[in-house]
Amino acid sequence: MLKIENLHVRVAGKEILKGLSLEVNAGEMHAIMGPNGAGKSTLGNVLAGREGYEVTQGSVVYNGQNLLALEPEQRAAEGMFLAFQYPVEIPGVNNTYFLRAALNAQRKHRGESELDSMQFLKLVREKLAVLHLKDELLHRAVNEGFSGGEKKRNEIFQMALLEPALAILDETDSGLDIDALKMVADGVNAMRNPKRAFLVITHYQRLLDYIVPDFVHVLADGRIVESGDKALALQLEAHGYAWVGERHVPGQVGAGAA
């Protein structure tokens, strides 16, 4: 589904990703862990198509297409979803209106019929229940006045509604209390299926107690330095990221998973 090879990315003239390789197949749950400044969020932003990230080398192929040539809205329509680390507040744009516009734009792109407001509301109510989100949030402006936890749950709610093929969760666990974390994990687990893949970016092992990954990768200094199964996350928790650094000779590039 997604194949990243030797990806080098510069941000504001500084090289952040330095030869990252990773392969994600349908049905897999990948966790990317790593210390601050390793390039975790850069990876999410590059994949979603944010401006200001200059790819100097390498390739990203998504379902046989050159992902880097697509506009952000095309990537979304092709099934890619980024849950933002810091969801943006958009005053004046109604949450329901925004979601319906987004879903219908994607459906139109795929040649499917657009949903009318009744069909859309029915779908919304189904998805809301899973995340224990209040209806009231739908009538407000996008993320405006939402608490930190509400914003993150709203991201997962959007994911549930848009039903992407590849979901990237950028530190969705940060700033969440344990109850909210469980709700988010429930939302994600409910969506796991053999056709859908996840890339979960996180600092801490805690989230992985609830969302159990098939693969764990350690991102350090712009590349994947170690890959393993869920046991790797536990080892990291016990020893810290410095432990990975000690185990690797400088300059050695970790192999991609799968």
Binding site: A48, G49, R50, E51, E71, P72, E73, R75, A76, A77, F81, L82, F84, P87, V88, I90, P91, G92, V93, F98, L99, A101, A102, L103, A105, Q106, H109, A141, V142, Q158, L162
Partner: peptide, 23 residues
């Protein structure tokens, strides 16, 4: 940031701008 957020959900750039300026 708002423009990218809307586009990342599938809304075309022109429509996203119209939505933001209209609001």
């Amino acid at each position: 940031r708002a423009l990218f957020y809307l586009r990342s959900r599938g809304i075309a750039c022109v429509d996203a701008k119209r939505l933001l300026v209209g609001a």
